[in-house]
């Protein structure tokens, strides 16, 4: 499985990553190699096999919908790159 440049740029865009030229070249090589290895699962006939998403039988775990205190806004904003209490501040992205 060979990943070409166009595909790699598409995946990077989906993942919100901006790869530089070196990273693109290196990733094309390494990801192709890893995907080649992963194709070993194609040896298996999986037609009648059901999927499994996790190993415990629990399903639809629910809890009462009760109001509980959240984290204090002041403390939360201390972790923000930029804040204008009580808001997170972001650069203008719409002209």
């Amino acid at each position: 499985m060979r990943i070409d440049r166009k595909e790699l740029e598409h995946i990077a865009a989906l993942a919100r990553l901006e790869l530089n030229e070196d990273e693109i070249l290196q990733s094309a090589e390494q990801l192709s190699q890893i995907l080649d290895y992963m194709s070993v699962i194609n040896e298996l006939d999986l037609t009648d096999c059901e999927t499994l998403s996790h190993s415990i039988g629990q399903e639809n775990v629910s809890r009462p919908d009760e109001l509980k205190p959240g984290l204090p806004v002041k403390e939360v904003l201390e972790n923000a790159p930029e804040a204008l209490p009580p808001y997170f501040k972001v650069p203008r992205v719409i002209e």
Binding site: L8, L14, C49
Partner: peptide, 24 residues
């Protein structure tokens, strides 16, 4: 990148879907 690839349209069944079966 790998994770986004195996979940992306056109490859989901070939990778992620199959891996979920191998998990079983």
């Amino acid at each position: 990148m790998l994770g986004t690839y195996v979940l992306s349209s056109g490859y989901y069944d070939a990778y992620y879907g199959k891996a979920q079966k191998v998990r079983r």
